[in-house]
Design a protein around this nucleic acid. Sequence first.
DNA 1: ACTATCTAAGACCGTTTCGGTCGGAATTCC
DNA 2: GGAATTCCGACCGAAACGGTCTTAGATAGT
Lengths: 154, 154
Amino acid sequence: MLRLTKKADYGLMALKYLAEQSPAPVPASAKDIADAYHIPPQLLAKILQTLAKAGLLVSHAGTNGGYALARSAAEISAFEVIRAIDGPLFITSCITIHGTCDLAGHCTIKEPLRKVNDSIKDLLSAIRIADLAEAPDTEHYAASVGGGLISIAV
Amino acid sequence: MLRLTKKADYGLMALKYLAEQSPAPVPASAKDIADAYHIPPQLLAKILQTLAKAGLLVSHAGTNGGYALARSAAEISAFEVIRAIDGPLFITSCITIHGTCDLAGHCTIKEPLRKVNDSIKDLLSAIRIADLAEAPDTEHYAASVGGGLISIAV
DNA sequence: ACTATCTAAGACCGTTTCGGTCGGAATTCC
DNA sequence: GGAATTCCGACCGAAACGGTCTTAGATAGT
Ligand code: FES
Ligand code: FES
């Protein structure tokens, strides 16, 4: 129902990789990260370029070049990564950049869903990539963050 | 980033329509609902069929036939509708029905994202069809439900 | 029994998105 | 200068999405 693209998935993995070995004396090349997770190197390269263009990574060309985090791992949220890669898409198919929808007027569903969208955005924004990196023990981590600790005030 | 398909959107609209005029003396035909929102009748018909098969609607064939809610509008959540239409997709591209992912092992990103997925599911589950129907004044409704009232305990 | 109306079911198709590849140009270090 | 590596855009196949069409089957009214 709600799908995160594989590219965004790869992007998060790459960010986590960089966060784990920082401060890095030498930036990590796209190939290094791709090898570590067994994902297509060329695809990962393009994702990293996108991330760099979005200001989340700093790139360094040339021999021994590579990518490094632009900010501290604690200051980068999962939401930023996803938006940088997948674009500013929204939960409802109608809320596009052109604020008008072809169904506007005879559709009262839009407004409530937009609020859901915002809530999800808040949720994603609260997750920083430092949270991912500092969780080698997935079971224990799941217990600390998961567990339906979310509450909605109606 | 997180997209709700247009089909699910239509499905929610149809559910809302049915909730508004209940208890209905006569079930609403697919064409009635399609006309009300100016959406393709045949497409809406197929969506309603899916919803009926999922047990959210009851269908009645024949003259003056149509669809009606299977339960009270307050007992149907948006989550059920979305899952019925878009299928049991998950936020991460890897959490498929076959629990194993090709990247399993070298990917610590999975578990945290699964928790986010669950949180979104909870959020959607808390929204009932009745909430949509009883909100003719969208502005006022938005204030009562939206507004970042979501809180995450970390 | 007949017929009009409506759902049920599925094949089908055009367009877009997604995942992934390729090739070439520019940059930096040795 | 040469090797490594980022940068950029074009490209492609497969899948999903949105939508249409056709046929069959159920029901109510006459
Ligand atoms: S689908 Fe665009 S306003 Fe509801
Ligand atoms: S993408 Fe499948 S386990 Fe992370």
